[in-house]
């Protein structure tokens, strides 16, 4: 066990030494990797920002709940309380029949025609802004609200909801694809950096192999190097991401107040903070494994071809 720990400590020290050996080169590589990681991380973060997507959607579907004509105040109060308590409802507006009639009367040309009405023909109405945008969630909310006391009808523009959901799905998929592409680009950079190190150490690898070092022993320091690059760049990317979100929120806050909506982004969650370095570290470990295994295989191939 002691020997195993010592071997790993040695490899760990070697990989730090390699990074420290050319500090400016290392710093540059880390910043390139961090920039590469920041964008996909931001896109993944955006994907989980339901409220941001809601606010960013310019025209959102809403539901209109019509009470029966002459519905009792008790029933209207019950529906009001139900809406206030429903977590799927972001906000709602209650419009009394007289209020609705007054609004219609203000429309040009309608005031004189409505003056002859003997009684108000309009029901009590609620205009509801739902939290979710998925058509299924909206349909479920519609169903639930229809069951309220003395509710005549709940209307939903299903077609618009489906179109908007389709658009959002497309945006999510695009974000995922871009995140994947950027992540792949980062993997290629790490592959190249480790391969460069392997190239520089080609003679050392050959000698170690001749003396009897196993592939695992030869590979170990390169794996640490790749993992270190991944971890450090992910930490740098986390810092950049936090800074970007804060910078964005400062601007978005003013715009949100003007548009009467919330366009700000939530800060990074703990799983996101943990996932970025762990995921990147693992990816870079894998890439370093491929890169160093390839190099060792080339040395062994040299033996097989009789070119040692």
């Amino acid at each position: 066990m002691r020997a195993w720990i010592d071997a790993h400590l040695k490899a760990w020290r070697w990989s730090w030494g390699q990074l420290w050996h050319s500090p400016w080169g290392t710093l540059l590589a880390l910043f390139i990797l961090a920039f590469q990681l920041t964008l996909p991380a931001l896109l993944v973060h955006l994907q989980h920002q339901e409220s941001w997507w809601n606010a960013a959607s310019a025209q959102r579907p809403h539901l209109t709940l019509y009470m029966q004509l002459g519905a009792h105040d008790d029933a209207i109060q019950t529906v009001w309380h139900t809406l206030a308590a429903d977590t799927e409802v972001q906000s709602f507006q209650s419009i009394a029949p007289q209020e609705a009639l007054d609004q219609i009367k203000r429309l040009p040309g309608l005031a004189t025609s409505l003056q002859n009405l003997e009684h108000n023909p309009l029901p009590h109405t609620f205009v509801i802004l739902p939290r979710a945008l998925a058509p299924e969630a909206l349909a479920a909310l519609q169903q639930r609200l229809t069951r309220g006391p003395q509710v005549a009808q709940v209307k939903l523009d299903q077609q618009w909801a489906q179109r908007l959901a389709g658009l959002l799905r497309f945006a999510h998929n695009l974000a995922r694809l871009l995140a994947l592409l950027w992540l792949l680009a980062s993997a290629f950079i790490v592959f190249h950096l480790v391969r460069e190190q392997v190239q520089q150490q080609q003679q050392e690898i050959r000698i170690s192999h001749w003396i009897g070092a196993s592939a695992r022993t030869i590979r170990r320091p390169f794996l640490y190097l790749g993992t270190l690059l991944g971890l450090l760049s992910a930490l740098l990317a986390l810092g950049m991401l936090t800074f970007l979100i804060q910078l964005y929120n400062r601007t978005a806050g003013d715009l949100s107040r003007l548009l009467d909506t919330d366009l700000t982004l939530a800060t990074l969650t703990l799983p996101e903070i943990l996932l970025l370095p762990l995921g990147t570290g693992l990816l870079c470990w894998l890439v370093a494994w491929v890169s160093s295994t390839w190099a060792i295989a080339r040395v062994e191939q040299g033996e097989a071809n009789g070119t040692s």
Binding site: Q203, G212, S214, E300, E303, A304
Partner: peptide, 24 residues
């Protein structure tokens, strides 16, 4: 395999014509 041959070499004292040492 190349790996098995390397394991075998680990138990042999090898002196090469060129003095191959690990530079770092």
């Amino acid at each position: 395999s190349a790996q098995a041959r390397a394991r075998l070499r680990a138990n042999i004292g090898l002196i090469f014509q060129e003095p191959h040492l690990l530079q770092r």
